[in-house]
Amino acid sequence: MNKMTIKVKTDKLKLWYGDKQALNGVSLDIYENKITAFIGPSGCGKSTYLRCLNRMNDLIDNVTIKGKVTLDGHDIYANGVDEVAVRKKVGMVFQQPNPFPKSIYDNIAYAPLMHDMVKKGKECDALVERALRDAGLWEEVKDKLSESGTALSGGQQQRLCIARTIAIEPDVILMDEPTSALDPISTQNIENLMTKLKEKYTIIVVTHNMQQAARIADMTAFFHLGNLIEYNETEKIFVNPKEEKTEQYITGKFG
């Protein structure tokens, strides 16, 4: 692979929930315009790690974080950095689709308006259309933009959430098991969408679906018990893993 720019970098990242340690020093470089997949057995800390990258863990009481996370070389936990500003640059899509109980239009327009990215009216309409087109949802909803976002199907809702995220034009999109609540066809839609979106964004995705990681990810990281066990190009991880644990996991011997 040529011209790999490091987008996000963590250095010996450790995290405690109260006095229970969930991450034991994870050092990892995530490359720009690539899809990076995190795999690993349940409870190994994938979501925890992901939430460190946009400071969502700040919302949980009693969390201690040590180590360093940088975005484009800038420490996101440095003094004086506002977590709200970090989340504007690092968006997130959740496992359960969670559109606001508002119209499809408002779901997308709300955050850009709050960030003063666009003005109400034509400019905002254009942004909504662009976001919905990018998320591959425009054709399906263009006639019912004023209907509730919660009235869509699960897969449509998830694409609406993705559209909502790209509407604020982040650099990085975090996705925590974005397809685990969806049927195979919706899953395929979202996978295609992700492959398309990586031209513009850096995508990090947590998944329990090994085939999914193999299909879409450029890089794959394997986590186990709060440790990063192996991190490499996806092909190498699946065809020729270096660690015994990784091999056991991807061949389904545990997890």
Binding site: N54, M56, K89, N98, R164
Partner: peptide, 22 residues
């Protein structure tokens, strides 16, 4: 549901915006 608040935070909204509008 807490997922509404999470959605707001992930979009870089402030607490006040989330509470007031959602």
């Amino acid at each position: 549901p807490d997922s509404i608040r999470q959605a707001g935070f992930a979009l870089g909204l402030t607490k006040w915006q989330i509470v007031r509008d959602h």
